[in-house]
Structures are given as C-alpha cells and as structure tokens.
Amino acid sequence: MKIAFVGAAGYGNVGDDTYPLVFQEQFRDAELLFFNSDLPAEIPSDLDLIVLGGGGIIYNSATPDESPSPHFRCMQFYMDHAIASGTPWGFLSCGLQLRAHRDEHFRADLAPWTPYLQQADFITVRSPECVQKIKEITGRQDGVSFFPDAAYLLRPPAAVSMPAGDRPMLTLVPSGLINPHNLHTQHMVRLARSMNYEIVWMNMGAPVDDARHLDDALLFEPTVRLLWNPDPVTAYTQIGASRLVFSGRYHGMVFARVQGIPFYVPEDAPYKIRKEDLQADPAGAWGHVETLQAAMARVARLGSGAGK
C-alpha cells in the first residue's frame, strides 16, 4: 500500500522530524512517501491514502491583507488532490495551532479549514480541546478522536545511550520564556548550579529559530555545554539522561514525559503545551496507529472488490 504523509519534517524541527521515524517503524509493510510545504512538481497517481500529519499543521496565520495563509494554501493543495482523485485521506496526530490570546477567535481563524475537516475520512488529534473545537466548527459527531501525540511512540534502539556523568544534569530546551535572557530561567539555572547540576542547552526547533538562544547561553556562561541541532534519537536520549528538563518546546515535554523525567514548562506556553492532557496515558498514542490501520483495511477491502 502506498501512503503519502504531509507534515513539516525536513526543516530541522526535532518534533516534526520524529513523526516519519514513528510512522516508518509502525507501517513497515507499506510504501511511505513524505511531503511538506515545499510542494512537489507532481504527486504520484497511484496513492492509496493521503495523511496530513503529524504535528500542529492545522492553523491559518494570515496577515490582514493575506487570507488564507501560505501554509494553508500548501496544505490545501494536498487536500484538493485527494478529493479530486478520490483518494481516501485524513488527519493523523495533528493539533490546532491557535495564536496567543486568540483562543476565542478559533472559528474565524480556522474558517478555511472547516470544509476540509468536514470531509476528511478520519481525524485524530492530540488533545481533547482540539476534538471539541473541531466538532464545534464542523458539526461532526464522529470520526474525530483524541489520542496522545504519536511522538510518544518513539523508541530509539537500546544500543543508543548518552554517556553518564558524575553530576545530575539539567537540560534546557529553548523557546518562548525558556531562554537565556529570561529572569526566571536564569534564577532556576542558578538554583540548579548550587546543587552541582551540569547545565545543557539543546535546541529542538530549527536553527533559524533557536540558534540565537544557544549563542546567548554561551555568551552568558562560556563553560556551558551546548547540544546543537540534534536528531530525534539524540534529543530523546539526552532528555532521558537528564535529572530535570525545562522545555519551551512541545516535544521536549513529550520526550521527558514518556521517559518519566521530571519537567517544567512555562505557564504562558503555546496552545499545544497548555492543552496537553497530562492525565492521559502516553501509551494511548497507539490509537493513531490503529486509526490508520483501520483506514488501510478499508482501502484494501475496496481494492479487492470493485477496484480503486
């Protein structure tokens, strides 16, 4: 079976780069193709399924004179292709990305998405709040499910390990309020230093977003250890070797939580962090896999009958 995944992998964001690893592991018997907003010259004509996700791709951050946004138009390209070609399609392990202080305007902000969310064959999202909002704007009562983010399923090879040091380690994943200039972050680092913690700054966002934070951390303290541009396995392993994690990035929290590492995220965090259901068992992320397996089974039944 040939499945196209449309996400945001390949731009250096560790969280977005995690999803292809998870999907490749879980769907080894399928032929998987990965696309993003760098639109292809053409899409194969023999696709069996088109999947949008994973990640927070459901957003429309248009400027006042530009609606819908360039991001939405890129996603629209794939959705229109699926509809026009009759290819089954849906959203897998996605999240709403609502702008700060605009939660109450989600109907207007997500308006371009509404007709597509109404037509998708399946939708799995990573917070109960996302389910509620999608149902409100679409009127759907079924076909929309919450499961913890698919990145909770990442399991690096057992042979991958981070050298253990003699000191406990605090790993800081910068974004938003977790940055070297933030006074609260500086205070928490001082407290950790007083208890002989090793301090490690690691970017999980793309270098264009996070390189300045690591540069600044080095300016503040030339002896600090930096971990530049890790791949998902390296980031997962670094977090697993930590005693404590401060993260401004969603997947810094995910990697800490699934490994049982104590973590802190700011109160004024992005929507996806604020709306994470911290009571949900991370193992429930398997629901995304089961949803796609069910979609694949439906395609197979149709193919064995009248043909695609």
Score class of each variant (00 low, 15 high):
Met162Asp: 13
Asp231Met: 14
Ala295Pro: 03
Ala9Leu: 08
Phe220Ala: 13
Ala120His: 11
Arg301Cys: 11
Leu177Gly: 06
Gln24Arg: 14
Tyr197Asp: 02
Arg140Met: 15
Asn229Thr: 02
Arg257His: 14
Asn196Val: 12
His251Gln: 07
Gly287Ser: 03
Asn196Ser: 10
Gln118Ala: 15
Pro44Thr: 14
Ala269Glu: 02
Glu104Gln: 07
Phe91Gln: 01
Pro148Lys: 05
Ala62Met: 14
Ile43Ala: 08
Val200Trp: 00
Leu98Pro: 02
Leu183Val: 15
Val200Phe: 00
Ala30Gly: 11
Ala283Asn: 09
Tyr197Ala: 01
Gly240Ser: 13
Tyr152Met: 10
Gly176Ser: 01
Leu49Cys: 12
Asp277Tyr: 00
Gln26Gly: 08
Asp231Leu: 07
Gln97Leu: 12
Arg193Trp: 06
Pro262Gln: 13
Asp65Glu: 12
Trp228Val: 02
Met169Thr: 04
Cys74Asp: 10
Glu276Met: 04
Leu218Arg: 06
Arg249Cys: 11
His105Leu: 04
Arg190Tyr: 12
Leu292Tyr: 01
His251Ile: 06
Lys135Leu: 08
Met204Tyr: 11
Thr223Glu: 12
Lys133Leu: 12
Val265His: 01
Asn229Met: 02
Met253Trp: 10
Pro148Met: 15
Ser37Thr: 13
Phe246Cys: 01
Ile239Gly: 03
Asp216His: 05
Leu52Pro: 07
Gly307Gln: 11
Asp17Phe: 03
Ile178Cys: 00
Phe91Ala: 00
Asp215Ile: 05
Tyr264Leu: 05
Pro88Met: 01
Phe77Val: 04
Gln76Glu: 05
Ile123Cys: 14
Pro128His: 06
Thr237Ala: 15
Arg140Thr: 12
Trp201Thr: 03
Phe72Arg: 10
Val51Met: 09
Gly143Lys: 07
Gly252Val: 00
Pro88His: 02
Met188Trp: 11
Ala192Tyr: 15
Gln141Thr: 06
Val160Trp: 09
Lys275Asp: 13
Glu25Gly: 11
Thr291Ala: 11
Ala30Asp: 11
Trp228Gly: 09
Tyr11Cys: 11
Glu42Tyr: 12
Asp121Ser: 08
Pro232Arg: 00
Gln259Gly: 05
Thr63Pro: 08
Ile58Asp: 01
His101Asp: 15
Gly7Trp: 02
Thr124Leu: 05
Val265Trp: 03
Leu177Met: 08
Ala217His: 00
Leu117Ile: 09
Met202His: 01
Ala120Phe: 07
His181Tyr: 11
Ala241Glu: 13
Ser175Pro: 03
Leu39Gly: 03
Leu32Gly: 00
Gln26Val: 15
Leu47Gln: 04
Gly260Arg: 04
Ala111Ile: 13
Glu198Met: 09
Pro112Lys: 15
Asn196Gln: 13
Trp89Val: 04
Phe122Pro: 02
Phe27Leu: 03
Asp17Tyr: 03
Ser85His: 12
Ser161Cys: 13
Glu198Ala: 05
Ala211Leu: 10
Gln238Phe: 04
Ala300Leu: 11
Glu31Leu: 14
Lys133Ala: 07
Arg102Gly: 06
Pro148Gln: 11
Asp38Asn: 13
Asp80Ala: 11
Pro180Gln: 02
Lys135Thr: 15
Leu183Asn: 02
Ile50Asp: 03
Ser93Ile: 11
Gly7His: 04
Pro232Asp: 06
Arg249Thr: 03
Val265Ser: 05
His105Ser: 14
Tyr78Gln: 03
Ile58Cys: 10
Phe5Ile: 05
Thr234Glu: 12
